[in-house]
Amino acid sequence: MLNGKLLIDAHCHVGEGVHYRLMPDELLRQMDDLGIDRTLLVPADRYIAVDNAEGNDFLLRTVKRWPDRFGGFATVNPWYGERAVAELRRAVGLGLVGVKLHPVIQGFLLCDPLVHPVIEAAIELDVPVYLHTGTPVNALPLQLAELAQRYPEGRFIMGHMGNPDFWLDVPTALSQAPNLWAEISPCLPGMVNRIVEAGFAHRLIFGSDAPLTDLALEVMKVQYWQVSEEQRAAIMAGNLLRILAKGG
């Protein structure tokens, strides 16, 4: 709990990556220090790119060991086609609660029909889809809004809210697709204020993107958002819990 409010980190990478490393026991220590109740884990870089099942298995082991503190989003590379769909079914069947896709690391245009089988499987499994955004040319908020409009029955999360350069697109994307939420790492507090002022406090989700960021500084920003306490609680946890709920 942070200042009496539930705090859930919607996006944190664990495992031994190529570019970074964060192990669950170390993360738990940091969560305890910082008042983070729960964290949704995603695999580290190379598992997102190629070794999907290996990464998903690491998440599954971690979630099973600390079920009160961790949940996990599986990753599958859409280029694997039917094998990606099968891996997503396996990982969700064993306990992961969403799917994370990264158009840059996995190498596809965010709204390429290549990704449709994975989206359709996520909808069938009733889990949300998190997509990295903000990196031109193939991971942009409006591309995600296009995908989300094509699948109105899906639940989509705009990773990093278009950071750093696509903040102007965010309110438009959120307006186009009511089934789209935005995860705010590593955006400045002023950027969160701006999207709240545009009327989207109920669509924002706290996430850290650690260890690519400093977890303590991501948490520090929570106190600076110029929002009502009700909105703060919603961004810290409430909005995410609604998306994770089956049939949400």
Partner: peptide
């Protein structure tokens, strides 16, 4: 810090903290 492209409270603290820590 890029302050001014959003001079909201916390913007400068966040980026200063990235160096201080």
């Amino acid at each position: 810090t890029d302050a001014g492209f959003g001079a909201a409270p916390g913007n400068q603290e966040y980026r200063l903290g990235q160096i201080q820590r």
